[in-house]
Structure formats: structure tokens, C-alpha cells
């Protein structure tokens, strides 16, 4: 299976006042060519750090002690800054979460869409035409005149369409969608998801889709990666993950999804406890403190990666028993 993105054993540390914060620890993540992979996990689990690491736009106090980020056969961590810059937006591009602040407020949409074609050997008129064409493909009405609009003149849904148009204009091999619908209301969310599905079919890029919304993940993705506190704890096909989770954290996360609760109840379920201190992670399983299944062994030894089915693994001592 050829991979658009293959992250192997990636770790990222932040230097903070409290000490070294291990934001990502030995993360493995595979996005096969042309597939949509979902990434789920609660806030603070390292999703944003992962995106920044792939784009090599980590904060100044971050350090990558080890691992590989292989995009289309090249390890991005081995590239020079200039080589990496050439790949951003062309080989890998991103749609960010907040459409209200993601576009430059003092430049027109058209100007920004033309500027990002800076690597293309095209005339200015051709760039403009391409941008208008792309706006039409994301169903912006009257695209030619919208080119002269400023971001504040568009609604949130429109701006997110513009962001998608920008991200897909250079036909990237990988699109990272960082909660692209979280800031939008439900009807817009459906429209944006359908648009992404359609464009992905046309362009054939792989998508790494990050979301809290399990329903959207189930709808859109073929594979799912579950992250907890800086580690990938389970990865598998979308049906396996949703119907036969092999990690207690995945199961707890699914149980908390309001969309899956059948009977009326007073309080919504939650996972008791909170994220561990990542400046001093526990020696054993990172989830042991909050896990209902944990025994003495869990706190002492790190669980290995256990394959429970072809293409489905989890890092839990009880992975086999969970199924």
C-alpha cells in the first residue's frame, strides 16, 4: 500500500518553564494514497502539534527528538527550510479550523489566491483565471466578482469554502483538514463535508481529517487513528474502530458521543479524570489512571502494539480481550 503520509515513531517535545513537555511520543500514523483518514482525540492530545510537525511550522520552543515524517517518499524532517517551504501548500496543504481569522483581513480573496500560486510559472491573468475557476468549484456564487471581496465581507461558511479552494488549488497529494467544520453550524457542516468528499473524488488527494465529531468521521473516513495524550493508541478501519474498539480509551470516547446515546439520562457520560502531566509521563500505559480495566501491570509496563485484525492495532494489554 503506497502511502501519502507515513509518520513513524515521531516525538515532539516543548521546552517549557515546568520542564520538557513530551507533546508527542512515538506516534505512528499512516495515510494511504487517496484515502480519508480520521484523527480523533480530546483537546490537548497533540493533534495540533502533529499538524504543525508535518508542516514543519512548530513553535520556536519545540524540538523533534526522533522519528520520520515521510510524505510521498521523502522524509520531511531531512529537508532544508527552503526545500520544505516549496512543499507547503503544493504537496501538503491545510484547511484550518477558524474561517473567521484564517484569511488575511486587509488583502482581497483574489490577491491571496493569486499569491499562493507563487511557485507556478503562470502569467498573472492565468493565475487569476485559475483562482476564479477554483472558487466556482467550491460553489461560491459569482466567483469573478468575489475575487475583489475582502474576507470580512463573506460569511463564515463562504470563508471556509475559500480556504478549501486555496488548499486544493495546487492539487496537493495530502490535505490536512483541522476541524474544518467545528466553527460552523450544523447545516453548513453537512455542506462542507459533502464538498470535501466531492473534491477529494475529483482531485484524488489523501485527506487527514481531524475532528471531535465522531459522526462526521464515520461518514467521511475509511480509516481512523485515535490519539490520547500525545500517543496514537489505536488505528484501524472505520468499521472496526466504531464497532469493535480494541482500546478502552476508544470505547470510552465512543460511549461519550451524544449521537450514540439511546436512552434519556440526566447527565451526559464523561471519562473521569484528566490528562496526565506530560512533563513527567507515567512509566506504564498513559491511559492507566483513567482506565476502568487497568490493573497493577498497566501502571508499570508500557503496553505493546497489538494487532487485533489486519490493519487494526491498539496499544493495550487487553486489546485481544476487548474485542
Amino acid at each position: 500500500m503506497k502511502a501519502a503520509l507515513d509518520i513513524r515513531d515521531l516525538s515532539v517535545d516543548y521546552h517549557t518553564r515546568a520542564g520538557r513537555l513530551h507533546a508527542l511520543r512515538n506516534v505512528d500514523l499512516l495515510v494511504p494514497d487517496g484515502e480519508v483518514v480520521g484523527l480523533v482525540g480530546e483537546s490537548g492530545c497533540g493533534k495540533s502539534t502533529l499538524i504543525s510537525a508535518v508542516l514543519r511550522l512548530l513553535a520556536e520552543n519545540a524540538e523533534v527528538p526522533g522519528g520520520e515524517i515521510v510524505l510521498d517518499g521523502t522524509d520531511l524532517l531531512s529537508l532544508s527550510d527552503a526545500e520544505m517551504r516549496l512543499r507547503r501548500g503544493r504537496d501538503v496543504s491545510v484547511v484550518f479550523q477558524d474561517p473567521m481569522t484564517g484569511l488575511n483581513p486587509v488583502l482581497t480573496i483574489g490577491r491571496q489566491m493569486i499569491d499562493i500560486q507563487h511557485r507556478e510559472a503562470l502569467s498573472r491573468a492565468a493565475r487569476r483565471e485559475r483562482a476564479v475557476d477554483m472558487l466556482a468549484r467550491v460553489r461560491i456564487p459569482d466567483p469573478a466578482s468575489r475575487m475583489d471581496s475582502y474576507p470580512h465581507e463573506l460569511s463564515g461558511g463562504m470563508r471556509q469554502r475559500v480556504a478549501i479552494a486555496m488548499a486544493l488549488m495546487m492539487n496537493p497529494k495530502l490535505l490536512i483538514a483541522d476541524e474544518p467544520t467545528t466553527a460552523l453550524d450544523a447545516t453548513l457542516e453537512v455542506q462542507i463535508i459533502e464538498l470535501l468528499q466531492e473534491l477529494q473524488g475529483e482531485i484524488g488527494c489523501a485527506i487527514l481529517f481531524i475532528s471531535h465529531h465522531l459522526g462526521v468521521i464515520a461518514e467521511l473516513c475509511q480509516r481512523v487513528v485515535v490519539m490520547y495524550a500525545g500517543s496514537a493508541v489505536e488505528e484501524g478501519g472505520v468499521r472496526d474502530i466504531f464497532h469493535a474498539p480494541a482500546h478502552p480509551y476508544t470505547k470510552a470516547l465512543l460511549d461519550c458521543d451524544p449521537g450514540r446515546i439511546r436512552e434519556r439520562r440526566q447527565t451526559l457520560p464523561s471519562i473521569p479524570g484528566s490528562l496526565p502531566d506530560l512533563t513527567a509521563p507515567p512509566p506504564g500505559c498513559i491511559f492507566a489512571d483513567r482506565c476502568t480495566k487497568a490493573d497493577a501491570g498497566c501502571g508499570a509496563t508500557q503496553p505493546p502494539r497489538i494487532d487485533t485484525a489486519p490493519g487494526h492495532w491498539a496499544t493495550c494489554h487487553f486489546a485481544e480481550a476487548m474485542r
Binding site: 511550522l57 507547503r88 484550518f96 484564517g102 507563487h118 511557485r119 486555496m166
Partner: peptide, 8 residues
């Protein structure tokens, strides 16, 4: 961040 993500 967006501008940087497009390699400007």
C-alpha cells in the same frame, strides 16, 4: 499561519 502553510 495560513500564509506560512502555503509556503509564501
Amino acid at each position: 499561519r495560513t500564509a506560512r502553510a502555503f509556503g509564501l
